[in-house]
Design a protein around this nucleic acid. Structure first.
Lengths: 209, 209
DNA sequence: AGAGCTATATATAATGC
DNA sequence: TGCATTATATATAGCTC
């Protein structure tokens, strides 16, 4: 039975504090879950108990790593470089990190070209190459689209046939190969966090139709 | 006035969803704050709205970066700890490196799409979006090519005119804008390592012709 | 968007087991 | 520890402004 208003101040009695922590943590995670589902938003919650135990929650269709990356991307844009504070501890790590940052920068610049940004930094010849490259990309994409369209139609036609059609098997095998090829890293970091597709929707086909 | 139990399912009406998001987000952050104070624990909350806006909360006496580092350290401990040989001296650096590696992976996957690799992981709708995106890219590139062609011709014609032509000035201004826009980060990450243009030559125009 | 209002639904502090 | 109970305090959906 609650009496009086709750004063938000550290609970000094250890037992009470632990009990309250367990209860409130549970409902906080529940609330986070509800918000993520009701409003279809991505969110992550990280809690370290007083005994340093980790509790976390992350909305479906994303991963904490993904959220962290997006968070850092946001913050990066807001503040200027503030990585200086954890640099003096291990300079070799920092160096490697710097080279990785450069690589990320370069990759991003390359991706930006496809959005039409930075084209003015290219020579005429490079623009020509780029144009040819784009035409080739377009061909690939269209070919794949057509292929998939046909596959989908065939599948639809055979929907009530045998349990697993040739196309389905091929599709699965193909996907498995790609997945295997793309995920040398055993870490399940990509389980829900597919690469962010900047030019459109963010979800990839997760199973054959 | 609430009637009946809340069913936790995505709210389809956009307006309702937004209102609920605003209200629940507010109280979720409040609850997070209360838990952190009452129980004196460290916690972080990251929320991305449907419009991709970031809202976050982090308990006092720590920072989100710190929490993220601790989180990643925990998670790493849960999976096979095979990076221990990397450098146990600065494991927090390793964590950050891991997230960077993942980002690099993602960026590379996105770039590979333009080479026609991984298209089979896209849904039909995504392929459509991608196709449209490529067409737009192509338009941009062609427009820029034409623009540069004209500029080059004019410059050639006026080569012996006044020291700085209008086009040159405009080009310089444009380039300066782009450079400025692209390098919020004051770090000279691009000093020597120009982005590697995978689809052709590797050098970019470094000065107006 | 955001601020109040109101009737319910939930959360939760204290207690006992 | 954890679980159930219970009396209150909060949260919140729908509404108006």
């Amino acid at each position: 039975m609650r009496k009086g208003k709750r004063v938000i101040k550290k609970i000094e009695e250890k037992i009470k504090r632990q009990v309250t922590f367990a209860k409130r943590k549970k409902s906080l995670i529940k609330k986070a879950y509800e918000l993520s589902v009701l409003c279809d938003v991505h969110l992550g919650l990280i809690i370290f108990s007083h005994s340093n135990r980790l509790y976390d929650f992350c909305s479906n269709s994303t991963s904490m790593e993904n959220l962290i990356m997006r968070y850092q991307k946001e913050k990066e844009g807001q503040t200027t470089a503030e990585h200086s504070f954890h640099s003096d501890q291990c300079s070799d790590c920092v160096k490697t990190k710097e080279s990785m940052m450069r690589e990320i920068e370069n990759l991003k610049l390359n991706l930006q070209l496809y959005d039409g940004h930075g084209l003015n930094l290219l020579t005429y010849d490079e623009l020509l190459s780029f144009e040819l490259h784009l035409e080739s990309s377009l061909q690939h994409a269209r070919a794949r689209k057509q292929q998939q369209q046909q596959t989908d139609q065939k599948l639809k036609g055979k929907e009530k046939g045998q349990g697993s059609s040739w196309e389905q098997l091929m599709w699965q095998a193909e996907r498995q190969m790609m997945t295997c090829q793309r995920q040398k890293d055993p870490a399940p970091a990509n389980e829900g966090g597919v690469p962010f597709l900047r030019w459109g929707t963010t979800h990839r086909r997760s199973s054959p139709p």
